[in-house]
Design a protein around this nucleic acid. Structure first.
Lengths: 174, 174
DNA sequence: TGATATGTAAAACGATCGTTTTACATACGA
DNA sequence: TCGTATGTAAAACGATCGTTTTACATATCA
């Protein structure tokens, strides 16, 4: 279905640039180039549409994190910021906007963060040799989130700093 | 003015817990225990109220960062998270919700982030001895933002991990 | 040919948005 | 005692919210 792809990419763009609550259905229908009847048939409703957007974003993001080294994780984040810009983590922003009381959204957000953390832990384990280092994995997660957040006002420099910091931490944990 | 204090603390609570856009003026008047006429006389409007909330929050946060060591910065963040909970940075969340096109809000957010970064740079300079280390300061900023963001789904553990990471980075920069 | 699916355009739904206004009460200081 | 300030309660403002419905067009395929 071509219609669904158009809807999802238009919705992701608007939600990301203007926020979930502030984006009205009329703006969504206009940007997706379809009637509201068709939009509701495909997406179900606003919250379900946001959940679908986040599910798709999770897929795209996790694909970029199919790497073997901690350094490559931050290289991937650098690419992401350069291509898509830095407006903060859409998952956390949406969770914050809805106060956590939109079930469909909360579930996707928490699931994404869990698999994200798991992926980082795997990569850290490979880099360290030997068993996993839970503390180092937590540190890398924090650096990744911090780079994402700080890049909003510091730009790509924040990601570069996180990358260097991760190198130091990995080295000192080895 | 007692009225203004009641308004600001009620507004901060609601904006922080439910988001800026999703919080209606009726909920604000009810929580602050005042008529909408009085609210508008004191605050001017919704955007100006949010700006006032952020200004007050900046004051409170910066007060907690009147410390001498990088380690104390993260100790302060631990206290904050324990007392106020972890719902992410209200400044960045609000900036994200408004897409950056509410002037009154954007100005306070950017000003806060600038002074925050400056404070971190000062503390880093004291800890390192000798001139400032711009790269280390950027790393500490990233760790602080990352701990704030990751604590939403990882809890206080995220702050503890950031604290340890900062220790390692400061040591290796010395 | 005629049913089924898939789309648009546009109006309507009741609710809620941020804000202003009208009308009235109370306290304080000249 | 009279004006000024400061408050409440409640209605009204037009706009916009998310969602559903009505009426109609087009394409596919048995």
């Amino acid at each position: 279905m071509d219609m669904k792809r158009k809807l999802l990419s238009a919705a992701e763009r608007l939600f990301d640039r203007h926020g979930y609550t502030a984006t009205g259905m009329d703006r969504l229908t206009a940007a997706a180039g379809m009637s509201s009847r068709t939009l509701y048939k495909h997406a179900g409703g606003k919250a379900a549409l946001m959940a679908a957007v986040l599910t798709e974003r999770d897929r795209r993001l996790m694909q970029r994190l199919e790497v073997r080294s901690v350094d490559a994780v931050f290289a991937a984040l650098e690419d992401w910021v350069r291509i898509e810009g830095a407006r903060g983590c859409l998952f956390l922003r949406t969770q914050g906007e809805t106060g956590g009381d939109t079930r469909e959204v909360s579930e996707v957000v928490m699931a994404h963060k869990a698999t994200f953390r798991e992926r980082i832990a795997e990569i850290v384990a490979v880099n360290i040799g030997g068993g996993g280092d839970a503390e180092l994995a937590e540190q890398v997660v924090v650096l990744f989130e911090g780079a994402t957040a700080a890049a909003v006002y510091r730009g790509p420099e924040a990601v570069a700093a996180a990358r260097v910091a991760a190198r130091v931490l990995v080295e000192s944990a080895r």
